[in-house]
């Protein structure tokens, strides 16, 4: 029999089940080089063998904004709280696109990486973390476009003035990332076994955008009622709404500040969904290879 003192210097112990919140942060830190490599790969590989290359990052939101200007601004005639249409849509599109990209890519973590996960071990959480980071780079570039358009409007004297709430911007981006990561890893954990969710999910993301004030201002729904409930309250229950609204108010003075209460609600929601996501991810990562 082994002596107990000798038992203590095992460096790796593989057991059937992990503790609920047993996230090995040191291990993730040890693999930080892998994280940066994944981020670099995501960014460089995306537009290899294209003529326009990274320009696509700017063309995509520009085209989307033009489309929104025609459909929602022109045909449907939805107002934009007095903000020039390109600015209003571009701000919303940048923010939403970041959220949606993080969410969809994270939710496919297990399915798209099955071949790598099936052959070698590294902390699985690296993958969704790399997604969120590489999308952040992309978001930064697209946000640069927003700044350029903003400066243009400032020069011609039509830009709405930003206010102090804009200082919340870094927090807002972190909250978007947290929400996307949290929801994404919950979905990714569930899709390993039940692929139904994957199909359902692409549809849900599309609907979600219309449930968030991206192409219309929240002020448009004020006072409206659905089934006897205040529509504005229902929309604010969507944790993305307070984030988007705060951003629009801070950067463009569009509408009015949504209130600290809703922002705190959104932050709380983010933390809960993130914790829940890590919990379920931890449980699934051990044996997902057998079901994926």
């Amino acid at each position: 029999m082994r002596k107990s003192s000798e038992n203590e210097n095992w460096t790796t112990v593989i057991k059937p089940h992990n503790g609920l919140f047993e996230v090995n942060l040191k291990e993730i830190w040890d693999y930080r080089d892998l994280l940066t490599l994944f981020v670099k790969r995501d960014i460089t590989v995306q537009y290899k063998q294209t003529v326009l290359g990274p320009l696509w990052w700017l063309i995509q939101p520009a085209l989307t904004v033009i489309m929104y200007m025609v459909v929602f601004g022109g045909i449907a005639g939805i107002p934009t709280d007095g903000v020039p249409q390109p600015l209003f849509y571009l701000g919303g599109v940048c923010m939403w696109q970041y959220f949606a990209d993080c969410l969809t890519k994270t939710s496919n973590t297990f399915v798209t990486n099955a071949n790598v996960f099936g052959k070698v071990y590294f902390p699985r959480l690296i993958m969704p973390m790399a997604n969120v980071t590489s999308n952040l780079v992309r978001f930064g570039i697209q946000f640069g476009l927003f700044v350029v358009v903003y400066i243009y409007y400032a020069i011609i004297g039509m830009a709405p003035s930003p206010n102090w709430y804009f200082l919340l911007f870094p927090l807002l981006v972190v909250m978007m990332a947290g929400l996307a990561l949290g929801f994404g890893i919950v979905i990714s954990s569930l899709t390993t076994k039940y692929r139904d969710l994957q199909i359902l999910f692409t549809f849900v993301v599309q609907l979600w955008m219309y449930g968030t004030p991206i192409v219309y201002p929240l002020s448009q729904v004020a006072g409206k009622k659905v089934l006897g409930m205040d529509l504005e309250t229902i929309m604010c229950l969507n944790p993305v709404t307070p984030v988007i609204e705060t951003f629009k108010y801070g950067a463009l003075s569009a509408g009015e500040f949504i209130g600290w209460g809703w922002l705190a609600y959104s932050l709380g929601f983010t933390l809960v969904v993130l914790a829940f996501g890590i919990l379920i991810f931890n449980k699934v990562q051990k044996s997902f290879m057998d079901t994926v």
Binding site: N7, N9, W10, T11, T12, V13, I14, K15, P16, H17, F117, G118, K119, V120, Y121, K286, S287, F288, M289, D290
Partner: peptide, 15 residues
């Protein structure tokens, strides 16, 4: 290799 987890039992390793 920790690609998948065991159903029962433990594996201990040094290094």
């Amino acid at each position: 290799s920790r690609v998948t987890g065991p159903t029962t039992g433990t594996i201990k390793a040094r290094g």
